[in-house]
Design a protein around this nucleic acid. Structure first.
Lengths: 148, 148
DNA sequence: CTACTTGCAAATAATTTGCATGCGA
DNA sequence: TCGCATGCAAATTATTTGCAAGTAG
């Protein structure tokens, strides 16, 4: 259970289990789409009407620090998005019209490529991003394209 | 000559050739590293001490619109970076310590991969990003890692 | 009880916009 | 001259921080 695991990590690192924190965690556990801070806040407010956006931001930092969530490496809309760490390496399909972001398992980067580049460029690769931007099925025929 | 080409594009699209605009263009032509708005401003100020950061931003938009520069799809430091369109497809090596960004020609994404995904996911791919994050040769042994 | 947390308000930082003046074509 | 451009100041947006009060353990 991913939620129990996260709560265990809170405890081990001296963080208290507050209802707000728990609810923010639940939003991610119950959702495998990347969410913005505001979206997380919007969901948590349903149950904790007084929770502030600040608290969401502060808890996102902690979840990041504990490796429970990740911040996406790309920004389309001028704000960051965060997603639960699934444990499996993956990338994303991102719609340039509606912003919908879907995870895909496919990765084109092979270990031979990595070795060659590390050798040639004297660069130690820690991670990589690979994102596909385009139009999702629903947005194919929409005329207007968002600016992001 | 890339600069002449850009100036031609300005003309054709009804944009005037102001000294500030020309100087901003020159910064990119004389530099193949991705630059932030502030870095561009810093360079242009050397020659036009009164130029405002606003003007830089406004001209970056125009350069983007005309396809003369591109905005990088990833953000590490909380701000966007822009680079001259080289005409060749490429990706980047990005140092997580010092932020240095180098272009590389290597691309792992093949047309067969593309076709398969477009078919399977019913997603029309318009562009993709592929960035390698890690430590450059100079930063290998540095102890501190920046937060971005 | 005590340190971590929270909400509120204010501060930052990047980027954008309104407006009157300036200047290229 | 005329409309696009610029500089300045103020607005916006995402995110961060200071602080006093609240609460988990």
């Amino acid at each position: 259970m991913r939620e129990d695991y996260a709560i265990e990590r809170f405890r081990k690192n001296g963080y208290k289990i507050t209802p707000q924190r728990q609810e923010i965690l639940k939003v991610f556990v119950g959702n495998n789409l990347p969410l913005s801070a505001e979206e997380v806040h919007r969901k948590v407010v349903e149950r904790y009407p007084n929770i502030s956006l600040d608290t969401v931001y502060r808890n996102l930092s902690i979840l990041l620090e504990l490796g429970i969530i990740s911040k996406l490496d790309f920004i389309l809309e001028g704000k960051s998005r965060y997603e639960l760490n699934s444990g499996k390496h993956h990338h994303h399909l991102v719609c340039l019209k509606c912003g919908v972001t879907e995870a895909i398992d496919f990765c084109p980067f092979k270990s031979l490529d990595r070795e060659k580049i590390e050798e040639e460029k004297k660069f130690e690769i820690k991670k990589h991003s690979f994102e596909l931007f385009g139009h999702c099925e629903l947005c194919r025929e929409k005329p207007q394209e968002k600016s992001f």
